[in-house]
């Protein structure tokens, strides 16, 4: 898409705010609509937009495929790990009350950790699926669209 000037300029302008918005949705999710699932999808949407307009090679330089797969596994493990930690500090699996001195604080920490795990897992899973599809795509001529 080298000659689509408008698309390239708009993408450059819009991709960073999308990522910022994804982070807002991620970390403000307990006060307003949002959370890990939405943030992950929005984050992935920004990267996919970048990849569509500037080419797969550039976006793979930002987030290489080997890292994507490992981060997806890390997200799931962060979720499970939070549960295991709460198991070891004396409560049931995924009961965060014992993570801090006050149960309410513990719940809050637990929710933030778990949502972060979900966000990382969902974002990287979506990007991995996009890589899988886009790596196979034959070159599309602009006349075809």
């Amino acid at each position: 898409m080298r000659h689509h000037l408008i698309l390239r300029v708009i993408t450059k302008l819009i991709a960073p705010p999308i990522i910022l918005f994804a982070l807002y949705v991620q970390f403000h999710g307990d006060y307003s609509p949002g959370g890990g699932f939405q943030a992950g999808v929005i984050f992935a949407a920004a990267l996919i937009l970048f990849g569509i307009v500037f080419g797969l090679r550039k976006v793979k330089r930002v987030l290489p495929p080997w890292l994507v797969i490992r981060l997806a596994a890390f997200g799931v493990l962060l979720y499970g790990g939070t549960g295991v930690v709460s198991l070891f500090v004396g409560k049931s699996f995924l009961d965060y009350s014992a993570l801090a001195s006050y149960p309410k604080d513990g719940q809050h920490y637990g929710i933030i950790a778990v949502e972060l795990g979900v966000g990382i897992a969902v974002a990287t899973v979506m990007v991995a699926i996009y890589y899988a599809f886009a790596s196979r795509t034959p070159r599309i001529n602009d006349e075809d669209w």
Partner: peptide, 26 residues
């Protein structure tokens, strides 16, 4: 103490379910 009830249920009360869903996505 989380104002968004949906987040509280998703991550805390029904954390088990959500863990399963994350694994399914993975």
């Amino acid at each position: 103490g989380v104002p968004n009830v949906v987040t509280a249920i998703l991550a805390s009360y029904r954390g088990y379910d959500t863990f399963g869903e994350t694994v399914v996505v993975f």
